[in-house]
Simulated assay, not measured.
Amino acid sequence: MTVTEATRTRTAGATPGCVPAGRAAQELTLKRGEFDLAVHLGLIAVEPAAPGGRPRIRQQEIDRLRGLPGFPGSLRDQVRTAGTAEAATLLGVRPVRFTGLARIGCVTPVAFYLNRYRAVVWLYLVDDLLAFAAREPDLITGKSPAGMRTMLDAGVDRRARNWRSRRIDRLLSRAEDPWTRAALQASALDPVQLAEVVEDPYERAYLARVQPDSVFGRPGSVSGREAMERLMLADDPDEILWHRVNLTLELERARELRPAPRPGCDTGFHPVRSGPTPSRLARSRLAADRPAAGLPVPASPQAGPSPRRPAGRPGAGRGLLVRIGLRRPGRGDR
């Protein structure tokens, strides 16, 4: 019996038909970062984790991928990334030209890492770069358009914003529960913006509990997690408005399905998480103005829903602009 077969046998004894992520990455001959990216892009299907557990991969999924034409090169090519210098070389331009194209949104980062100076280094899918070069050859070889120069002179940099949009869209594509979808929209808002849209502290606590992890795999370094938390927050007015509106709409659907749990009340629904507990940012958003998620607390005049609205449906009956905090309620809204 080979080492791989023995490992499969031991793993199957713990969780029938599934293997942990580290073993799956080895069998697919992927580095751990490549494996995490493949899962994030939907190239590798994972099994939902039990509460407090870690997602696992079915052996059938590994066998399927190993049977694809060109394996392992074909799979590895789909998750190949390039930084600014390599991307510029691939496109045949100077790094400063590529940086300008990325800043105005011609290409969207798929990941990042921190260099030794703790500066963010954006990474781009090589497939995206080649597709852009085929689609916009004039931007590669021609003179920079006046509009591009104007945007760069004004300091436009859409890399973080486009990365956020790509990340949230990818996670939304796998999220079916309305509360989870609302949590993804909430993840882009700072604590003040979030509290303006979601007035109920128990709902904010629940959103933090069900928020999916940003990536599959091992937790990164402390500095990496802090950088992730900073980059996750929307910083442009129209981007903030977009997430506020979408959060409001997703909350309406979620409240219709079930209310957020409160002390002494169990809805019977326990969302499956795909990794460790909520990020430090999610917890810090709630520490100052809400009880710990799922823990009973003494009743207080400030806790619970506002007496002006029915319990379980905060904001019901009010206009959209009032609910996202862009208009004060009038007499008819009170």
Rank of each mutant, 00 (worst) to 15 (best):
T9C: 02
V19R: 03
A21P: 07
E27I: 03
E27R: 06
R32D: 15
G33Y: 04
F35Q: 04
L43P: 12
E47G: 07
P48D: 06
G52E: 15
P55I: 00
R58F: 10
Q59G: 02
Q59M: 09
G73L: 08
T81L: 03
A82I: 14
G83M: 07
A87Y: 07
T89P: 02
L101Q: 08
L114D: 10
R118I: 05
A119I: 09
V120D: 01
V121E: 05
V121D: 05
V126T: 15
L129P: 13
L130K: 11
L130S: 08
D138L: 10
L139N: 10
K143S: 15
P145E: 13
M148F: 10
R149F: 02
M151E: 06
M151N: 00
M151I: 01
A154T: 01
D157K: 01
D177C: 02
D177F: 12
R181W: 11
V192D: 15
L194P: 15
E196G: 13
Y206K: 06
L207S: 03
R209Q: 11
Q211P: 02
D213H: 02
G217A: 08
P219H: 06
S221I: 10
V222H: 10
M228R: 09
E229Y: 07
E229P: 01
M232F: 00
P237M: 05
L241E: 04
L241W: 07
W242L: 12
L247I: 10
L251W: 11
R258Q: 03
P259F: 02
P261K: 02
C265H: 14
C265W: 14
D266F: 15
P271S: 06
V272G: 04
S284A: 12
A287T: 14
D289N: 13
P291A: 13
A293W: 15
A299W: 14
P301W: 13
R308I: 04
R309G: 06
R323C: 12
I324C: 03
G325L: 11
G330E: 08
D333Q: 11
